[in-house]
Each structure stands twice: as C-alpha cells, then as structure tokens.
C-alpha cells in the first residue's frame, strides 16, 4: 500500500507542500491530512469501470488510475486519497454511489 504517497488531485496535500517552509511544526501537524480513503477489491466491478471512477472522482491521469486499480486488484486494497475527515467522507460517499467498496481510516502517520 502506498498510503504515504500524495496525489495532485488532493488539494490538502498540495496546500501542505506549498506552505511547508512557513508553518510551525505544531500547526503543520494539525493541518496534515489525517484520514485515508481505501478502495477494496471487488470481484464484480469491471476493471475499466474502476479506472473510470478513479479518473472521474479524483482527476487521476489514466496511468495513475490504472496503477491504483491494479493495486486494488492485486493487493486487495488501495489508498486513493489522504485528506481531512470531511473530504474523506465525501469521497467515500461518492465511491459508494458508484458501487465501489470504500472505507476511511485514520492515517498511520496522524
């Protein structure tokens, strides 16, 4: 699992990287994304459909969407976003609306 890898689609991660040198350590910890959105393997959803959903919801490039889909398929799960709780709930809800099995969990580094 590559839960520590930030994605460009995640505005929180992008914000963190651009302000890193200006933020005090304590405040930086508070701003860090603390939830991971996990997509789980599912024998019914088509691989091409999962790639489509990843591209649509997260704005992933085709290459990244394919990599994340294969991670789900081969490893059983993939962390597709790291963000605050509210946005993680939003993403999980949207993934469910598209029929994907998704959960959210506190990031290990939070």
């Amino acid at each position: 699992m590559s839960s520590a890898v930030p994605f460009a689609a995640d505005p929180d991660t992008a914000t963190e990287s651009t302000t890193e040198t200006r933020v005090e350590p304590d405040a930086r910890t508070k701003l860090a994304p603390s939830w991971s959105v996990i997509v789980w393997d599912d024998p019914v959803n088509l691989q091409s459909y999962v790639v489509y959903v990843f591209q649509r919801l997260f704005g992933f490039s085709e290459d990244v969407a394919n990599l994340k889909m294969l991670e789900v398929h081969n490893d059983g799960r993939s962390a597709v976003a790291h963000t605050d709780r509210e946005r993680a709930e939003f993403f999980v809800t949207r993934l469910h609306a598209y029929g994907l099995q998704a959960t959210m969990e506190r990031s290990k580094d939070s």
Binding site: P43, V44, N45, Y49, Y52, A97, Y98, G99
Partner: peptide, 23 residues
C-alpha cells in the same frame, strides 16, 4: 454507467458471486 453497475452488483450478490473467491 452507475445504473447498469448497480444492477450488476444486485444480480451478482443475488447469485452469490460477490465474494473474492466467487466472482
């Protein structure tokens, strides 16, 4: 797409094809 996928999920679950070893 969302609708067709929903129906497929329903059918697969009903047929017992929704677990990792029964797809």
């Amino acid at each position: 797409l969302r609708f067709v996928n929903d129906v497929r999920l329903v059918l697969a679950t009903d047929l017992g094809m929704d677990s990792a070893d029964s797809g």
